[in-house]
Amino acid sequence: MFFQQLVNGVTLGATYALIALGYTMVYGIIQLINFAHGEVYMIGAFVGLIMVAVYKVNFFIALLAAMAVCIPLAVLIERVAYRPLRNSTRLAPLISALGVSIFLQTLVTLIKGDPNPLGFPHVIQDTVYALGPVKFSLIQVVILIVASLLMVFLEITVKYTKIGKAMRATSEDYETANLMGINVNHVVSFTFAAGAALAAAGGVLVGMYFNSINPFMGVTVGLKSFCAAVVGGIGSIPGAMLGGLLLGIAEVFGVAAGFDTYKEAISFGLLIIILLFRPTGLLGHPIQRKV
């Protein structure tokens, strides 16, 4: 029972982590809470569904197609709604992000015709593997593998490539990076693209796992993933992974322990408690106040 719930929690946490990475990277570089990120995830799920249901492609092609749509979308959102506001107050891009979020939810609802959820065709068999008393379904295995691969890939990109170095430099100090000849606009675009790719993958995986997608699915998952990013320490990539897993496990065990009616509150409660003791999250750097 315990290990079974742990498996459920880790799978859920892995999807939170995928989405949380997008929040954390963007925040690390331009200090913006990208509230439209949840909608990118939602659109990723819809693209995946269309590919699988209409074009009958296999799961990996659908995953790539969702990424291919979401990457330009996220870059476009940044260009239109955030870049003109980069030097204004902190709240202006936030409101703009909310505008994007409402716009995309309504757009998808209008194209779809109604806000009702759609199911996801079976692209992965319902095979169940037993490891002692613990059961893994194939889809859980796929989620864990794909999520881990993407995260490792991201970590390598950030650590060892030129653009990754530029990202770290920009995140450290935007102004100085700009002065040192780094094209920060490219870095920001790349960050949005990378976040969108992960969110799109998250959308397709969640769509398959829970079998239901709808135009408003990005809202709660987005908020919870953002919580995960903050819990782990926003701006920190390992932090987002840790935060996602922690929240997923906490949620599953909270429900199992009988706090099912307070399920939605578990993430937020955990967030507040952690922030009170570690004001910048588990793996976040302390804020330095400059005079």
């Binding site: 709604a81 506001l85 204004s88 107050t89 202006a92 505008g99 994007v100 409402i102 716009f103 939810q105």
Partner: peptide
């Protein structure tokens, strides 16, 4: 409504 929110912020960020 969503588009208005974006446009108003872009043209009147304050």
């Amino acid at each position: 409504y969503g588009a208005l929110m974006i446009l108003m912020m872009i043209f009147r960020p304050y």
